[in-house]
Amino acid sequence: MSDCEPLAALLPIQLTVNGQHHLLQLPPWLTLLDLLRDQLDLVGTRKGCDHGQCGACTVLRNGRRVNACLTLAVMCDGDTLTTIEGVAQGGTLHPLQQAFIRHDAFQCGYCTPGQICSALGLASEGRAHTRDEIREGMSGNLCRCGAYSNITAAVEEALPLMNGQGGCRP
């Protein structure tokens, strides 16, 4: 594409992220992950693989957990998103976050925002009850530090507290 050729027109997009409304003009090829990190400065959502393989970019889209790296921002017009920055209520950590701390469920912390958003999605799906079901339900989130057993313990402890709900604000 030559320099003087215009790129495709920017598209007007409305989004609610962590309760805050945004009106944006975006190119169609921008991923939700790059939008969150590079334009909205919500860098808690991580870029691990950028190919749907690691789960570090997991966010809640209309309450469901998805990989932000394989989502185009323009396809989220009108949607409600929750990232790790929206999980705590004011200064109070979410019970799941508290459980992660109590169980030492991270080492470097790189995968943690994705793990927490994924566990919130798991809770609202209401399908995981046993330890094995939690492990399977969290299998889309890799942890290169291998904190898996503590992550599972934290999720197991917090699930009943979440009452079948993600428990975060919509």
Partner: peptide
Amino acid sequence: GASPQLRNM
């Protein structure tokens, strides 16, 4: 198949 996130999408 895949992961819970991917199956949602």
